[in-house]
Design a protein around this nucleic acid. Structure first.
Length: 268
DNA sequence: CGGTTATGGTCAT
DNA sequence: TGACCCTAACCGC
């Protein structure tokens, strides 16, 4: 259940654990036909673009393209444990085993197909060469709301439902504000804050967005335990008091996803 | 044990 | 806008 920070972290871990190693590749579940084509090959690279992961091998130009979707997980386990449940792809060098479950996508792509996937993506806040001005241009010329734009992977690649809600809260922006009425400076702040938060997320493996002065210890409140593991201002805190102004956090559904915001701190 | 929910995305209508 | 993809965790009975 990943936003881009998880994919970048995973790419880093895969390189760390497997790069230069000969690996066994299989599809215990049987639904990744390409698994056999890289079996016994040497893993060469693992790279994240937004929420997409590409794994490269020494003997072929093709790369394994993975998108976890909303359910997918890739778990790194010591040794070679028995397969439990539905494992789409298993990769192992004997020392470590990577099990992929429930991905939206897991397929071998040739270089043009890889390029096509990447071409569809906007700048990725976690990639050093990302062009922030591309993001700003898209935002300030769009009639869509900023809440919609931050979930559009062609506008910004890797951001998901938690970072969207949290960044807009931190900057005091009403999620319903159209991109074109934000202004470049405001759009640049959104980019900068997203980069900052996602870098923390990549480093820690969890989403923390709460500033030091609002942390549980500083405010004498209980630490929050949610699936994403971190401390946040508004995500899934509907009906609970805002940590800053006390107003009840609101939620609504936008294009099938839950949006959370504080009506006090994020006034139009 | 069944129903619900989830950090996502595509496709059809 | 809704159906669907796919898996696992959680909740209430």
């Amino acid at each position: 259940m990943p936003e881009g920070h998880v994919i970048h972290r995973l790419a880093h871990d895969l390189v760390d654990l497997f790069a230069g190693h000969r690996v066994a590749s299989s599809s215990p579940q049987g639904r990744f036909a390409g698994a056999g084509l890289v079996d016994g090959d040497v893993l060469e690279s693992a790279e994240a673009w937004g929420k997409h992961l590409f794994v490269g091998f020494a003997s072929t130009e093709a790369q394994v393209h993975i998108h976890l979707g909303i359910y997918g997980t890739m778990r790194l386990l010591p040794g070679q444990p028995a397969v439990v449940g539905q494992v789409r792809w298993r990769l192992s060098d004997g020392e470590t085993t990577a099990d992929l479950r429930g991905p939206n996508t897991c397929a071998l792509l040739d270089p043009p197909e890889v390029a096509a996937v990447i071409d569809r993506l906007g700048p990725d806040p976690l990639r050093p060469e990302a062009d922030a001005q591309k993001f700003v241009d898209r935002v300030v010329s769009s009639r869509s709301t900023i809440a919609t734009l931050l979930m559009d992977q062609a506008v910004i690649a890797g951001t998901g439902n938690i970072y969207r809600a949290e960044v807009l809260f931190r900057l005091g922006i009403d999620p319903r504000t159209p991109g074109r009425s934000l202004g470049r400076e405001r759009a640049e702040q959104i980019w900068t804050d997203t980069v900052e938060l996602m870098e923390v997320g990549r480093a820690r493996g969890r989403i923390d967005t709460v500033r030091p002065e609002h942390e549980p210890e500083a405010m004498g409140r209980e630490p929050r335990q949610d699936d994403h593991g971190g401390e946040v201002y508004v995500y899934r805190r509907q009906n609970q008091p805002c940590l800053i102004c006390g107003a009840p956090i609101l939620t609504t559904t936008v294009a099938g996803r839950n949006l959370f915001w504080c009506p006090g701190c994020q006034a139009a």
